[in-house]
Simulated scan of single mutants.
Amino acid sequence: MPLLPGGLPFPATAAEARILVPDLAARVETTDRIGAVSVIGGADASSTRFDPTRTVHAAIVAMDWPALQELGRGGAVTQGGLPYVPGLLGFREVPALAAAWARLPQKADLLLVDGHGIAHPKGFGIACLAGLVLDVPSIGVAKSLLVGEVEGPLADEAGARAPLVWKGARIGVALRTRRGANPVYVSIGHRVSEATALAWVERCLRGRRLPEPTRAAHDAAGALRRAAGLPAGATEG
């Protein structure tokens, strides 16, 4: 089991997790501290809400930058973590992502996570927790909203963007990555500003709705599920 910042163990209950969130959220860095990027990673974790075994399938794919050719991948399957609690899914799924990271043959300099960063009810989604635990700059790239509203119209063409606002504060950006496709929601994970997060997501697009690193990670996590005889499934925290 990985440790949280400060050497703390992962919480064993949802109540313990809720106590830890304010301190962990305060550790998230919302300005750029990245360095040179030659390897970029995509991360995705998949679990089922009512699974009594609490199994999580997680994958991280490393790609070279700027070609975005796969360099390697790490996968992990964990069981018995926290129950499925909306708003706390990072605590359920990041241990599996940490195990996948440990098996990654070449570590990423920047990690795009399939899920939310600060665009989250507690301002602390899975991309934030993954960035802190793995000590890597991270970006949240989510496929659906948890909180907030898109402010103003979002044009239909690729590249259109609009602020994502909640309780009067800007928490991310809705980005139309492909004409006619639903937007993705980009937010700060850790050690990356919003402007830089948005720029990296756009650089990683290759004509599909999802940026290449998270698309590859989603496929890799799905392959783990299929190998276990389970249907494809995903959650976003």
Score class of each variant (00 low, 15 high):
residue 60 I to R: 01
residue 78 T to Q: 11
residue 177 T to V: 06
residue 26 A to C: 13
residue 85 V to L: 14
residue 112 L to E: 01
residue 184 V to I: 15
residue 14 A to M: 11
residue 161 R to K: 10
residue 129 L to V: 01
residue 21 V to Y: 07
residue 220 A to G: 08
residue 84 Y to N: 14
residue 34 I to E: 05
residue 66 P to T: 06
residue 122 K to E: 14
residue 86 P to M: 10
residue 221 A to E: 02
residue 51 D to Q: 11
residue 56 V to W: 11
residue 210 L to W: 02
residue 231 P to V: 10
residue 170 R to H: 05
residue 122 K to W: 14
residue 42 G to Y: 01
residue 143 K to E: 09
residue 150 V to N: 02
residue 50 F to G: 14
residue 224 L to F: 06
residue 33 R to W: 08
residue 35 G to Q: 09
residue 200 W to R: 06
residue 171 I to G: 03
residue 206 R to C: 05
residue 114 D to W: 00
residue 193 S to F: 02
residue 163 P to I: 01
residue 124 F to N: 05
residue 211 P to C: 12
residue 193 S to A: 10
residue 24 L to E: 04
residue 97 L to Q: 02
residue 184 V to S: 07
residue 10 F to P: 00
residue 223 A to G: 13
residue 35 G to K: 12
residue 144 S to Q: 09
residue 174 A to V: 01
residue 39 V to R: 14
residue 220 A to F: 08
residue 49 R to L: 15
residue 235 T to F: 15
residue 163 P to T: 00
residue 164 L to C: 10
residue 71 L to H: 06
residue 203 R to N: 12
residue 147 V to A: 06
residue 170 R to Y: 05
residue 215 R to K: 14
residue 120 H to I: 02
residue 203 R to T: 04
residue 160 A to M: 05
residue 214 T to E: 05
residue 187 S to M: 05
residue 220 A to C: 04
residue 73 R to D: 02
residue 139 I to G: 05
residue 56 V to E: 08
residue 191 R to K: 11
residue 149 E to S: 10
